[in-house]
Design a protein around this nucleic acid. Structure first.
Ligand SMILES: Cc1cn([C@H]2C[C@H](O)[C@@H](COP(=O)(O)OP(=O)(O)OP(=O)(O)O)O2)c(=O)[nH]c1=O
Ligand SMILES: [Mg+2]
Length: 667
DNA sequence: GGACAAACCTCG
DNA sequence: CGAGGT
DNA sequence: GTCC
């Protein structure tokens, strides 16, 4: 903790000086500024911003001096070689980061030139702007009563061929109804929690890449094409899933219902005043509602061309983005498919890629994964190299491999991997807490079986010891009925400790999967002060009643969010199960529930989209004006500014995405 | 030849 | 910081 | 590895 304070002191001291590594993206274009001014005016706010072509802010990091930065500009390395005007304000990333950490909203126009420190102002040009308020404006919570939002709805249960639970009826995706509405009270155990029923979900085939290539599909005669795009494509249409991916249509055949222990999350959260001041509908710009209840059609369509004023905002998003499409549950194929041999071999190849643990092989793996998604949807057998080449993401290398499988039945590459060492390495890497690197080390040490590890537990970290001991049990996926009971139990404990909590079981459970790898629980409370004790009391209570049996990791308040990772077991259950519990501050709820609902691939796609806009989406907030190092892509120089959101719908609207309910996020 | 490439977290 | 995790 |  001391080092942390020291760091903070250093940062504060630094703010006095001017140092910089420059990046170009820290200011908005004149076009953006003008559009933004118009939007704000339309929304009834006033805008103090002066549209300008000039750089009015220079974002800095701690590593170089202003002189060095100017030198870089002269050399053409930054800002396109154009020095910023004298009046430009130099801001350190530390300053910016601190403002964001302090939850002070910094809209772009606060950067208009001033002497002294720039004052963060509300976008609506409200009081904060005039007062030239101090740069750090603490976040205050509005203590209003809980919104209870459940409307009753008739229930019907249906399970698809895979056993996944689906929601039903024909309302559009961007529905205004709560995804969490309880429809039918259903006793799932001693705690009598309820199960709920949700909205429509027509299934579509899955697409696994973050960005997929849709165009090439038309050339692949047998390859499945993008479902919605292929509706009119003659021959290949039959190969694709017969369902449209758009959730606005509701084929009666696949209507089904999603059912789960109901959470207590509100449809929209209340924002702190400073955020409420700049909040507006990101689907139309109006001040009096959010995107969730916007009467207009989703933006990005011809009927609604609105674009939010934040620099980088998109007009629309192409269907190539995974998060822009509906991804229902993966369908179990009944009986044998025409390309099963190829698929099983390529799947094994895919697994060997994952065992490398390098970027390149990660890339190869994801490529192959996409190709496999197309191959799985094919109805005709692949018989030639040329035919394989026409499948999207199948290039020369993969086609050669398919050819080899066709002629020999196997792959040389795979045979070479079928050694005791590689098998052991793969098995070790399945253990919780053991990854590619440690698995390799274990093999190098001469270990070959799980028993070897059990006999040498002194070589393991605490997590790995638990992982090894419970390895068999943790391999099992959890039947949904058991998750129901686990969630009901946790919910009961949480709400008896603090009735004002909001609670939601997320992850694959919220997405309606038939079985879950673990239980993901998200909790929040309006009062920030209770979060810390709430977290501890919940974990303690769940330990005391014997539910939690092992701890794997628990946060100690370093972040605004508390995360517990551990293992629990119901008394009458056969196996120990992984349990994750996250406690988040109230205003981070929308981004947190979006994150925790996943899927992981869906999150990555959405986050990549945000990144491409010069924004950043995390489990905390969605930010614009993020400054990233142009060379080292992972280095973030400035956090940018928080865009306040009240619901998941708002995040979708900001990214120009149609809202996807949880069961359409199964990538 | 480059783009592709999530963004966080804890542990040791 | 690397490794492993969500 | 694939796509442009
Ligand atoms: C693993 C992983 C999860 N997440 C998010 C999305 C997930 O839904 C959420 C919970 O993680 P998980 O519990 O690992 O995933 P899951 O619940 O979707 O599936 P499973 O049935 O295996 O439990 O965390 C990421 O953002 N990135 C990741 O790499
Ligand atoms: Mg899960």
């Amino acid at each position: 903790m001391e080092s942390k304070r020291a760091k903070l002191a250093k940062k504060k001291a630094f703010l006095e000086g001017v140092h910089a590594v420059l990046t170009k993206s820290a200011y908005e274009s004149a076009a953006h500024a003008r559009r933004r001014a118009a939007v704000i005016a339309k929304a009834g706010g006033t805008c103090t911003m002066e549209p300008t072509d000039e750089t009015n802010v220079v974002l800095c990091s701690e590593t170089t001096t202003k002189a060095e930065a100017m030198e870089r500009i002269k050399q053409g390395k930054d800002l396109g070689g154009k020095p910023p005007p004298e009046a430009a304000h130099w801001v350190t990333t530390a300053w910016l980061t601190e403002c964001v950490k302090a939850k002070t909203f910094i809209p772009y126009d606060c950067f208009t030139v001033r002497s002294g420190a720039p004052a963060p102002v509300g976008e609506s040009g409200s009081s904060a702007a005039e007062t030239g308020s101090p740069s750090r404006q603490p976040l205050r919570h509005r203590s209003s009563s809980a919104s209870s939002t459940s409307s009753q709805r008739s229930a019907l249960q249906h399970i698809n061929s895979n056993g996944d639970y689906f929601p039903a009826s024909g309302s559009p995706s961007r529905t205004t109804s709560n995804d969490n509405n309880p429809a039918r009270a259903l006793d799932v155990g001693p705690m009598s929690s309820t199960l709920t029923v949700n909205d429509t979900h027509p299934r579509s085939s899955e697409q696994t890449a973050l960005i997929s290539t849709a165009g090439a599909a038309t050339h692949a005669t047998a390859a499945a094409t993008e479902p919605s795009a292929s509706a009119s494509a003659s021959a290949s249409a039959s190969a694709s899933a017969s369902q449209p991916s758009s959730a606005t249509q509701s084929p009666a055949a696949l209507v089904a219902r999603s059912q789960r222990v109901v959470g207590t999350s509100p449809e929209e959260i209340e924002l702190p005043p400073a955020w409420e001041a700049i909040y507006h509908c990101y689907n139309c710009g109006a001040k009096d509602h959010g995107a969730r209840t916007c009467p207009l059609p989703p933006r990005g369509t011809p009927e609604n061309t609105y674009v939010p004023g934040f620099p980088g905002a998109r007009k629309r998003v192409s269907r190539e983005w995974m998060c822009a499409r509906s991804h229902g549950h993966r369908k179990d194929r009944q009986g044998a498919g025409p390309n099963d041999l190829i698929i099983s071999n390529l799947e094994k190849l895919h697994d060997t890629y994952a065992d490398y643990g390098t970027w390149l092989h990660q890339l190869k793996a994801s490529n192959l994964h996409t190709a496999l998604a197309f191959i799985r949807r094919m109805k005709e057998p692949i018989t030639t190299y040329e035919q394989a080449r026409r499948i999207p993401k199948v290039g020369n290398e993969t086609a050669k491999k398919i050819d080899e499988i066709l002629s020999t039945g196997t792959l040389q590459r795979l045979e070479a991997f079928d050694t005791p060492e590689k098998r052991a390495q793969h098995e070790f890497s399945q253990i919780y807490g053991v990854g590619t690197a440690t698995a390799k080390q274990f093999v190098a040490k001469g270990f070959r079986t799980i028993q070897d590890l059990l006999d040498n537990q002194h070589e393991l970290t605490e997590r790995q010891r638990i992982g090894v001991r419970l390895h068999q049990e943790l391999q099992e996926r959890i039947p949904r009925t058991e998750v129901d009971r686990m969630v009901a139990h946790v919910k009961h404990v949480v709400l008896s400790i603090e009735p004002g909590c909001i609670f939601e079981a997320c992850g694959s459970y919220r997405r309606g999967k038939k079985t879950c790898g673990d239980v993901d629980v998200l909790i929040s409370h309006r009062d920030k002060r209770v979060l810390d004790t709430l977290f501890k009391r919940v974990i303690d209570a769940l330990h005391d009643d014997g539910f939690l049996t092992h701890d794997l990791a628990r946060s100690e308040g370093e972040s605004t969010q508390y995360k517990y990772m551990g293992i629990g077991k119901l008394k009458d259950a056969s196996f120990h199960r992984r349990v994750d519990i996250i406690v988040v501050p109230w205003e981070e709820w929308p981004c947190a529930i979006l994150y925790f609902t996943g899927s992981g691939a869906f999150n990555r796609s959405m986050r990549l989209l945000a990144r491409k806009m010069g924004w950043s989406l995390s489990q905390h907030t969605i930010n614009y004006g993020v400054v990233r190092d142009r060379k080292e892509k992972d280095k973030k120089l400035g956090d940018g500014s928080v865009i306040p959101v009240k619901s998941e719908h708002d995040v979708f609207a900001l990214l120009a995405l149609k809202y996807r309910p949880p069961w359409e996020r199964n990538a």
